[in-house]
Design a binder for these strands. Structure first.
Length: 259
DNA sequence: ATGTCGCATTCCATGCGA
């Protein structure tokens, strides 16, 4: 089973790239973030014509997450539990049937949190706490679980080109990194770090200031795995070439293979 | 280099979020 995650920065602007990616990477499941459209505006027919079932949790203008799957999608949960006042479309979870049993997969778009001196930053930290609490309950199920998405978290200095430039940023502040570690420490595996200690493996390059040309990137798109999923993971790839296309997303897909 | 996108409205210019 092949599972990928990709922040597309508007699904309508990225439809050609989406179709290309489905064809060339052939993911069984693709988690999307920042679709930036209401569900009725999502290109559902195009995804279905490519052989995918579609589960959506979108909203107009901002945010928006989705799960595309070649296999049937069951038991969809929309919205992250723990705050009835949170109207952001940032979380969708579903159970995907597989040859080796079912797998639970979530597509998550974490708050950016900048600027840190505003209420955006405590909202981000609270979102991370809510995800940790929810992930605890999911781990108790002892199932293969993949929490995939744009975490808006740079975990360590090796995950950013120039760490000194990011010390005051909500993606890299000590409290942000501590929450990410706390999430891992309930019993999740960072899929990329299960396979390599290398620095300079990035998933995002800003549109501004020639970040792509200078390889001034960040690793902020992550796949966190339960033990049952980690046991089945065989490889991981970052599909970096998607950033070099015309009119790219500022993020590239991350893709894992599981038995 | 104040450097780019995408969305929406205030609608061909501006504000917001990233």
């Amino acid at each position: 089973m092949r599972v990928a995650t990709w922040n597309v920065n508007s699904i309508r602007q990225r439809l050609d790239h989406l179709m290309r990616y489905l064809k060339e990477a052939q993911p069984d499941v693709l988690c999307l973030q920042e679709t930036k459209c209401a569900d009725e505006a999502f290109p559902r027919l195009e995804a279905e014509a490519a052989g995918y079932n579609v589960a959506l949790h979108g909203q107009k203008t901002f945010n928006g997450v989705a799960i595309l799957s070649k296999r049937p999608i069951e038991d969809v949960t929309r919205g992250l539990p723990g705050d009835t006042g949170d109207a952001h479309a940032r979380y969708i979870e579903a159970v995907i049937a597989g040859d080796s049993g079912a797998m639970r997969i979530a597509s998550i778009y974490f708050p950016n949190g900048n600027p840190p001196a505003t209420d955006k930053y405590p909202f981000k930290l609270a979102f991370m706490d809510r995800l940790t609490a929810h992930a605890r309950s999911l781990l108790a199920l002892e199932e293969p679980l993949v929490l995939a998405g744009d975490y808006n978290v740079i975990p360590e200095t090796r995950d950013v080109h120039d760490p000194a430039l990011w010390t005051q940023d909500a993606l890299f502040l000590p409290a942000t990194r501590a929450k990410y570690r706390a999430l891992l420490n309930i019993g999740l595996t960072d899929a990329l770090r299960a396979t390599t200690d290398a620095s300079g493996l990035y998933t995002f390059w800003d549109y501004q200031a020639g970040a792509w040309q200078k390889n001034n990137g960040l690793r902020i798109d992550h796949m966190l795995l339960s033990a049952q999923a980690a046991d089945r993971m065989r490889s991981i790839a970052i599909d970096k070439h998607m950033r070099s296309l015309d009119k790219p997303s500022d993020h590239v897909p991350v893709r894992i293979e599981l038995d």
